[in-house]
Design a protein around this nucleic acid. Structure first.
Lengths: 246, 246
DNA sequence: CGATACGTTGACGGAAATCAACCCCGGTGG
DNA sequence: CCACCGGGGTTGATTTCCGTCAACGTATCG
């Protein structure tokens, strides 16, 4: 019951990227009861219409939230990485209005709503912090609205890559501007609201501009300043504590 | 200090559309200290980069949150109506990552962060309710991502009109499928990520299909079922307590 | 009553979708 | 061991939706 769970390291690292944690808060997080699960690629973790009684923390892997239109088109709403709790909103919104699925095999840790609630009762600052986390979530959605609504496809792609780099770096998954991008071009297309064919062309353009190198799933940003400029990227909306200028 | 403020009626009505309120909670809301202000059309209430110390409640009028791209294009992120507190997120996100502005002259009521915090301390259920409100906010952003990313312009417009009708009806601003839409076509364009010329054509298409009547700012939905169908509209994401089927 | 903002219409152009091959590569099974 | 298969990536040809430009109509207001 009071076991310390190493899987919470990812969560703590993520939360520390958006706020300070007191030692006793970290300890309380580490004692959260977890239900561990490994899930294959392309599986729903939670589906639209579900009424979950627990939240899902990504320990390792790559997941996304998405919606399907009546025409059967998919729009990916956000990508999620180690330390994220993508369905934290289910604490206060009973019915899922979108789905959460894996993109590659994932290690997950489920946390009961009740356990989260008592944690927040005992540690009000953690309650505020989780609220803050969902607010940052919303800020990211806002940027995505701008991205798909008002930016041309090259800018869109650059912006997405910038966001991923900064978020991955915050949880130490970036090695000198290089990181793993384990998604298909079709999935990028569904995130950016463009076609998979066009994703291919835009990625080539970014390569020709000398901004990125991409071989297989290995992405290296060759010109960070240039990528930020073409992506019109300003990390303010991620509300990180240490401004990761770099 | 313990004055009862009639301006909170709008807020209470809005909160009651997404949860039940206990009498003492309503009373506490009515005693919130307010700073009233009237603002002309097309004025920023809060601007990107600001660090507000208070939140803004719309008593009457029509406002929007928006962002500007490097190319000077505007993307409207959400519309806000009577009872909304569009910048509630500033409680936990110090820096505004977008702007909040009026679309028509508005009556506003500002509430100090500190007053909100003590309100939530004394009434934890209200704290949860405000959190819930920001989560619904995020759900609306998600739908907008889908709308702008994966729907064609006619569907997009229909979806937006459906959302506005349901939200306005929840605060009793709809009279038998008719309501005031006090925004220009250019503003609709900035919300939908299309051009103002195209907005004009899409609105004409909706009229030709017999779905809406629009003269000046007066919008009447002639075929609600038809509009919902062409807009692929499912109100679940608004998380209203009484499902406004109608 | 002119100034100005908003709405409407038509002509034209362009960014990206769609369609259709084809390639490459890893996995599987005969 | 190699043939087959299928998913993902790449490329070119064609189409389409929507943007841009430009002109004109209309309404509101100081």
């Amino acid at each position: 019951m009071d076991t310390i769970h190493p899987q919470t390291i990812a969560l703590i690292r993520k939360l520390e990227s958006i706020a300070r944690l007191a030692p006793e808060e970290k300890a309380a997080l580490q004692r959260l009861p977890l239900r561990l699960k490994t899930v294959a690629a392309d599986q729903d973790i939670v589906s639209e219409g579900d009424t979950p009684f627990e939240c899902c923390m990504i320990v390792e892997g790559f997941a996304c939230r998405y919606n399907l239109t009546a025409q059967g088109k998919r729009q990916i709403l956000s990508f999620h990485i180690s330390g994220d709790i993508p369905d934290l909103q289910s604490l206060h919104l009973k019915v899922m209005d979108h789905s959460l699925g894996t993109l590659i095999p994932c290690k997950l840790a489920f946390i009961q709503h009740d356990d989260l609630r008592s944690l927040m009762r005992n540690h009000p600052r953690l309650g505020d912090l989780f609220w803050r986390d969902t607010l940052i979530d919303a800020a990211v959605f806002r940027q995505w609205v701008v991205n798909v609504g008002r930016r041309e496809s090259l800018t869109r792609m650059a912006h997405l890559l910038c966001e991923l780099l900064v978020r991955l770096r915050a949880v130490e998954l970036v090695d000198d501007h290089a990181f793993d991008l384990p998604v298909t071009q079709g999935e990028l297309a569904d995130a950016l609201g463009i076609s998979n064919v066009h994703v291919n062309r835009v990625l080539q353009d970014l390569r020709k501009l000398g901004l990125i190198a991409l071989q297989g799933k290995a992405l290296r940003v060759l010109d960070w300043e240039g990528l930020k400029t073409t992506g019109e990227f300003d990390p303010t909306y991620l509300h990180l504590t240490k401004e990761e200028a770099l």
